[in-house]
């Protein structure tokens, strides 16, 4: 769930908008450069953006009975890096705000920062670091997708809590800290109980989906730089019988 229109008062929506704008401009700069190098990239990004949107319109079965959707940005962060994912996330959020009435215009900056940048950045760093260790690729993908989803909601609740506490206390002084802590506990408590299982489910789905993709079209993943050739070979083990036959015939 994104922050709704009007939920962020005072200087907060401006702050988040400016922060996100800086990242989006950096992302567009990178985008322009990459498209200039290879025009095929634009078509690829276009379908990837549509993929994130469609993924985020997918309803997940939830424990608490309510419905929630995956953020879908974890997979994009692994494949395209955090800056491009921010641009894609921003576009997806604009469409969600205007087509589905999810999120809002003044809160677009805050939502872009949490869903498009913060979550994917953490996921991407973790993925890159863990890739160098000998950890299983699927476990790595699971962690990345889980972190991208969960970090998004943690930051969202902190964004909400800080903005409400600031408006409530009329500034950073006075009762700001007490109110902030109270709101943070409340928002995080509610998000953690409803979102933690969902983040796990999203991680599982993305990891298993990654396995299916690697098995049927592993070349796509290698092309995008998500996994190396050796990794692909170690994942998709060639059939032992066939290997034995090869030896016999050669």
């Amino acid at each position: 769930m994104h922050i709704m229109e009007g939920m962020l008062p005072g200087p907060w929506w401006e702050i988040w908008t400016v922060l996100s704008l800086i990242i989006i401009i950096a992302g567009i700069y990178q985008l322009n450069k990459k498209v200039k190098e290879n025009r095929e990239y634009l078509a690829l990004l276009a379908v990837a953006g549509a993929f994130i949107f469609v993924l985020s319109s997918l309803k997940l079965p939830s424990v608490s009975g309510s419905c929630s959707h995956p953020t879908g940005t974890g997979l994009a962060a692994i494949l395209f890096g955090p800056l491009i994912t921010t641009v894609l996330g921003f576009i997806v959020l604009v469409f969600q705000a205007l087509l589905l009435a999810h999120g809002g215009i003044t809160t677009l900056g805050a939502n872009t920062f949490s869903m498009g940048f913060f979550g994917p950045l953490l996921a991407w760093i973790l993925y890159i670091v863990l890739k160098k260790t000998k950890i299983n690729v699927y476990v790595n993908v699971f962690i990345a997708a889980f972190v991208a989803d969960f970090a998004t909601y943690v930051l969202t609740s902190i964004q909400l809590a800080s903005a409400q506490a600031y408006a409530f206390a009329g500034g950073f002084g006075g009762v700001f800290m007490d109110t902030f802590i109270n709101y943070s506990i409340a928002f995080l408590g509610i998000f953690a109980t409803t979102q933690l299982p969902l983040a796990i489910i999203e991680g599982l789905i993305i990891a298993v989906a990654f396995k299916y993709i690697a098995k049927s079209r592993g070349d796509l993943l290698v092309k995008l730089g998500a996994i190396t050739e050796e990794q692909l070979e170690s994942i998709v083990k060639p059939n032992k019988e066939v290997k034995g036959n090869e030896k016999i015939y050669s």
Partner: peptide
């Protein structure tokens, strides 16, 4: 349901990437 959703996501991803190639070809 978990398995089906994963298959759905993966086949959607493969289809989208193929579509991207076709789109580039069509535009070119």
């Amino acid at each position: 349901a978990l398995n089906s959703l994963s298959m759905l996501v993966s086949s959607l991803f493969i289809k989208t990437m193929d579509q991207g190639d076709k789109l580039f070809l069509a535009m070119n």
